[in-house]
Structures are given as C-alpha cells and as structure tokens.
Write a protein that binds this DNA or RNA. Structure first.
Lengths: 194, 194
DNA sequence: ACTAGACCTGAACGATTGTTCAAGATATTA
DNA sequence: TAATATCTTGAACAATCGTTCAGGTCTAGT
C-alpha cells in the first residue's frame, strides 16, 4: 500500500561516484549532487541520510567495482600474473583518460580527508587493504599454478603492486599521461621482485 | 613616510602551509587561516590577494623547502646516493608522524584540485617535476663520483624514486605507518634498478 | 473508488563561505 | 609637530553550504 522509489538506487550511486571521484568530498556540493542524480534534497536525505552517508555508499560500491575488475581481468587473461598485469594496465593507462580522475578514488579520499571525517577515512583505508588482499589471492593462485615461484612472499608482492599502482597513477597525473607507462608496467612484471 | 607591516611574511606563509597541507585547499577556510596567522581579512587580502594567491605562495615555499631538504640530506650523508636514501627516509618515515599530513603537499594538491583551479594545479605539477629534476642532479653526481654505474639512465632512476616515494607515502597512510618502511627503503636502494 | 502509507517537492533554515571597504591606527618624513 | 602614506581593523556583503520539513503526489491493497 505504498509507492515505489522512482529512481534506481544503483544508478544514483554510480552518478554520485563520478562526481565525488572527480571533485573530491569537500568540493562536491549536495546541490551539484542533486542535479546530477536528478533528485530533490528531501529524497536524497531520506535515502542516504547525509552527504557522508552517500559518500560512504559510493566508496563501498567503488571498491566492489575494483574487485570485480581484478577478477574480470584475471579471467580474461591467460594466467593470474597476466591478469594482474592487465588490471594494472587498465587502471593506470586505459581508464586514466576516461575516468573522472586519473587517481584512485580511495587513494584520493585518503589523501583528502582528515580525522574530521574519521569514518569515511577508515573505510577508504580498509577498502584499499581489501584490494591488496585481492592482489594476494591472485598471487597465491599464481604460485599454485606454478606461474610464480613458491618461495616468493605474496604479501610483499601484493604490497609492491599496490605501491606501484598508486605511485604510477600519481606520476601519470603529474605528467598528464605523457609517460612511457606501458614500458614501466612491463618492467614491473619482468624485473624484480617477480 | 609610512608604516611597516607588523607580521612576518615568511612566518605567515609557513603557518599557511601547515594548515593547507593538513586540510587541503578546499577544506581550509579563510577564517581558519586568519586565526592561525593572526591577521584580519583586510590584511590577508591586501597581502596575498585571494585564497588562491596565498595557496600559490605556500606551494612555492613548500617546494623550496623540499629542494633545500634534498641538498641538506646530500650534504650530511657521505655520498649522493646515501643522501637520496636519507631524504627518502626522512620524508617517508621520520616526518610522516610529525608533519601536518603523511602525504606530500604537492601530491595532495594534484590529487585534490581540478581544472577549476588550473593555475594551482599546473604549479603543483611543475613543482613536482622540479623536484624530480633535483633527484636527477644528485644521481648525475653519483655517476661522476663513480657511485652509480655510468650506463644507468638517470632520468629513469629519478622517475623511479619519485614513484616510490609517492607510492610508499600513500601506502604508509593506508596502514597508519605500521609497515616495514625502513626495509622497503633499504630494498629500494640495494635491489634493481640501482 | 477509496484510503493509507510511502515518496516527492521546493521553499526555507541558520551557518559558513570568500571577499570588500570605509574608518581608525601608526610610523615615517618634512 | 603636522602631514602623509601605509597598514590594520571588523562589520558587512552576497553567495553558497548541508540540511529540514510541511504539504502535495502517487500507488498499492481493500
């Protein structure tokens, strides 16, 4: 005996991601957000509670998309390590120009927020840890399949990948993408520590 | 036939750096800034023109402090490469907890700002390129002194250092510093590509 | 068809934003 | 000491911020 929401929650969150991702948490205004998702303030607040609440859901979904992307790359590529390389290439090179920002939204959030938004900050940190754990899963598979030496430290390698990705994305932003990213990724997977 | 400013311009900029560095450009309000530097709005605007103007000077000085720090490390250490290692250690480990932010202010700026603040964004990018050039100078010295193999590509090595620093600082932020940073820096300078 | 419950709307809230400016204060020069 | 050039002050500006809520709209169940 009621009325259904006329908007699609997933669509709204996706659009919110795009705006937050581009402008960051503080520079994104609720009014800007309301225009993009075509909702009136009352509906937004009834649905997400607050600016932080919507950002929280955006972060959560962003992370899930990232994990899905890792697994998708892994499936499309011929092997776990090839899958990781594909993922790095996709994130650092291909999506660099097409995304709202060349940086990872989670890394941007960690860089921007302080303890004044402790919950969001903690969530972004946790999400990046979760992504690193996904890297490690794939690396363990690589060991099982004999693609990666079994005496390699997968935790250390996962950390290495995480660091290289964020380092390269920042570097690419500095140079507007005019950098031999393909070669750098190639080097990353052929030289130490693999 | 006039009156001298009662504040010290350098002190004001240093305090502005600390606030901008911690909270970022957008989350820092002019009122917050005015309190910290103990100036009234009229004086601030007469001196720096705008929020962007003050940020611009803060960025400029921040970069200069960074360059000074590189040269200082290089002088204190026994050799160019040792100096670079000392600098990395200082930035990634020692100053991580004592600074307003664990991240580099320039990198934070690049991560936060968009084309809406094109000038500031361009300046932050240029400053990071300048710092990379400083790395390369030191690496060239290392080659001259025979500390670094002469067939190494110093441009590539400078880029590598830049990427590792920003990658490690982000990573340290994610894990609140609970990471074997010392070992990672050690590995960075003993293994490939040095 | 009617009613009840959920949803949508948009004006409005007080707080804060970056910024301006007229008036007062101060130190230097004549 | 008086005149002058500069600096300082703080109230005030319009704009925008995140958020609220009373009232209208719609749909599902009876």
């Amino acid at each position: 005996m009621a009325k259904n929401a006329k908007f699609d929650r997933g669509d709204v969150i996706d659009k919110a991601i795009n705006l937050y991702w581009e402008k960051g948490f503080h520079a994104t205004s609720m009014r800007n957000l309301q225009e993009v998702v075509d909702m009136r303030p009352g509906s937004v607040y009834a649905t997400f509670g607050s600016k932080e609440g919507l950002f929280k859901e955006a972060l959560q979904r962003y992370m899930q998309l990232g994990i899905d992307n890792i697994n998708n790359c892994r499936q499309l590529a011929g092997s776990p390590l090839q899958g990781l390389k594909k993922f790095v290439y996709q994130v650092v090179v291909e999506k660099r120009s097409s995304s709202p920002s060349g940086m990872c939204m989670l890394a941007k959030t960690i860089s921007e927020l302080t303890e004044e938004n402790a919950e969001l900050l903690a969530q972004a940190k946790q999400s990046l840890k979760t992504m690193e754990a996904e890297f490690e899963k794939v690396l363990c598979d690589a060991q099982t399949l004999g693609e990666l030496d079994k005496n390699k430290d997968t935790k250390q390698l996962a950390r290495h990948i995480q660091i290289q990705i964020s380092g390269m994305r920042t570097y690419a932003s500095i140079h507007d993408g005019n950098v031999p990213l393909e070669k750098m990724i190639e080097d990353m997977f052929t030289h130490y520590p693999f």
